[in-house]
Design a protein around this nucleic acid. Structure first.
Length: 556
RNA sequence: UGGGGCGUCGCCAAGCGGUAAGGCACCGGAUUUUGAUUCCGGCAUUCCCAGGUUCGAUCCCUGGCGCCCCAGCCA
């Protein structure tokens, strides 16, 4: 598919890697994608995955999947499983290189001992609140803890007893002894270990103390031989600390950290907290709700991994804060699906049409192209009869200028079938049009006029007697504001009430009953759809709209 | 009013002292039995602002301005 041919745009990370390879600094590069298993992956993670695995792929290196599992109170096996599945779904493979920071706990502990012996770490008895009070502020330096100058022996003894589980949660922590006056707050004697009597999803109850992110990440990178440790911009201020540990510990390798700007997408929220809230409040049906920016949601909606990868390639990588419009993502799926999706006729909001001069009981079959731009993909037969359904939007009694669908007195083409002319309408007691009457031109079989006259409009239809009824779900953006997080306001006030519309009785061309959830269809003139993998039943599909087609008429 | 980062077209984004890539969006126009697709063409005398260095600056220097991040025993 052409979407795979996404041009490789240059970016600062590729330049760095390229230079390091050319200069011989590294013979081969090693990157890693390091999620914390405390939630499900979202589109922002996809950017990181594509960067890390993509760099390794393009430069002949390798990329590890490493769970940054240093906080057992938030992490769960279910997240580990889901993350692995999502990375695979996106199309990347870590091969043998699946790691857990928790597998390095013993080494990390030994390194902590090393720092203590060097006089570069100490056991802190102050409470969390006291530590905070001693930390100072953005403009004032911090104050040193009264426990900062304990002897090495005492520190060793206390730290070993912390590990042994002798103290309750929160009683003490291990801190690095750096500089309480450092302008970079991360260097004001950061906490290295905290006591947590909590079982860990990967290493069980082996530990009573757990390392903090800063004490685990760089060292894990060093252990694995990571050459380029790529993370998001908010870790920029942690880099001096990252380097401090590598400088003060006998690590086997010297990785470098590089930061890029995280992905911001309009009309959605990305923070784990808010995503959790949407799920817990039942605002959405779950983590895989098709409106969610989670990879599970995007996947269920029907997006292809190719489209997501094309999106990641298109948005680029830089260090400047940026907001990508969701329409860019939407356009990526269209490009992918336009190429691969077989076409079908489906009427979402049916309006009955009776072709008065068409013989009752007669049925004809027309050849419809599965992919008009690609004849190799063959045709299928679509049945036609006297009573059909068309889209409500495709009929107007008093049309605006430029409307060239069905309207009284003018001709319109029924795709692949005949040219018809509307001759009247049937109304219900409220005056609403419930049926349209037409006459067809028998000489226009297949849709072309015998006399060669041009017909401007072509609309889709489905034979009333041959179509199948199905539920179709139309998804739209979850929020009605480009930035629901704007100005600290409650993002929930921007929820789009129309983010999902369920059409219980759409009329589909019969071939669609057999639709499997893997196949994405283009319902002509409407958009791309796929049978929902969860709610569809054999012979009774439920379709999700992945994305609409561009509609320059509707835009007017 | 501490430290760090960032500021190139509506949205992204190349560019690394030699006279503004590309994509998306948008606007034309052509083809079209999907108002889709495809195809052509247009779209920054200018790079946050002001000075300076230089034959020459988006790229270097100085000074402003704006936005983002950091005060978890989260990552």
């Amino acid at each position: 598919m052409s979407t795979e041919a996404a041009p490789i745009a240059n970016n600062f990370l590729r330049t760095i890697v390229d230079d390091d390879l050319k200069s011989g600094k590294h013979a081969t590069i090693v990157t890693r994608f390091p999620p914390e298993p405390n939630g499900y992956l979202h589109i922002g993670h996809a950017k990181s995955i594509c960067i890390n695995f993509g760099l390794a792929q393009d430069f002949g290196g390798r990329c590890h999947l490493r769970f940054d599992d240093t906080n057992p109170v938030k992490e769960e096996q279910e997240y580990i499983d889901s993350i692995k599945e999502s990375v695979h779904w996106l199309g990347f493979d870590w091969g043998e290189h699946l790691y857990y920071a928790s597998d390095y706990f013993e080494q990390l502990y030994q390194w902590a001992l090393h720092l203590i012996r060097e006089g570069k770490a100490y056991v802190e008895d102050l409470s969390a609140e006291e530590i905070r009070n001693h930390r100072g502020t953005l403009t004032e330096p911090g104050r040193e803890s009264p426990f900062r100058n304990r002897t090495v022996e005492e520190n060793l003894d206390l730290f070993q007893r912390m590990r042994a589980g002798e103290f309750p949660d929160g009683a003490r922590v291990l801190r690095a002894k750096i500089d309480m006056a450092a302008p970079n707050l991360n260097l004001r004697d950061p906490v290295l270990y905290r006591i947590l009597h909590a079982p860990h999803p990967h290493v069980g109850d082996a530990w009573k103390i757990y390392p903090m992110y800063d004490f685990a990440h760089g060292q894990s990178d060093a252990i694995e031989g990571i050459t380029h440790s790529i993370c998001t911009l908010e870790f920029d201020a942690h880099r001096p600390l990252y380097d401090w540990f590598l400088d003060n510990l006998p690590v086997p390798n010297r990785p470098r950290q590089y930061e890029f700007a995280r992905l911001n997408l309009t009309y959605t929220v990305m923070s784990k907290r808010k995503l959790h809230e949407l799920v817990n409040s039942k605002t959405v049906s779950g983590w895989d709700d098709p409106r969610m920016p989670t990879l599970m949601g995007i996947r269920r909606r029907g997006y292809t991994p190719e489209a997501v990868r094309a999106f990641c390639a298109r948005i680029g990588v830089s260090r400047s804060d940026s907001w990508i419009d969701v329409s860019v993502l939407e356009e990526c799926v269209r490009e992918d699906l336009n190429e691969r999706a077989p076409r079908a006729l489906a009427v979402l909001r049916p309006l009955k049409v009776v072709i008065a001069n068409y013989p009752e009981g007669q049925v004809e079959e027309f050849e419809a192209a599965n992919h008009p731009q690609n004849p190799d993909r063959g045709n299928r037969a679509v049945p036609f009869s006297r009573e059909i359904f068309i889209e409500q939007d495709d009929f107007m009694e008093t049309p605006p200028k430029g409307f060239f669908r069905m309207t009284p007195g003018t001709e319109v083409r029924l795709r692949y079938a005949y040219i018809v002319r509307c001759t009247g309408v049937v109304r219900d007691e409220t005056g609403a049009v419930v049926e349209v009457r037409c006459e067809y031109d028998p000489a226009s079989r297949g849709g072309s006029a015998a006399d060669g006259r041009k017909i401007k409009g072509t609309i889709h239809w489905v034979s009333a007697a041959h179509c199948v009824e199905a539920e179709v779900r139309l998804f739209d953006r979850l929020f009605s504001d480009p930035n629901p997080d704007r100005g600290g306001a409650d993002y929930k006030q921007f929820l789009n009430p129309q983010s999902v519309e369920v059409l219980p009785a759409a009329k589909l061309e019969a071939s669609l009953v057999e639709a499997d959830s893997e196949t994405r269809y283009q319902f002509e003139r409407q958009g791309y759809f796929r049978a929902d993998p969860v709610d569809s039943k054999p012979g009774r599909p439920v379709f999700n709209r992945i994305v609409t087609l561009k509609d320059t008429w509707a835009r007017r």
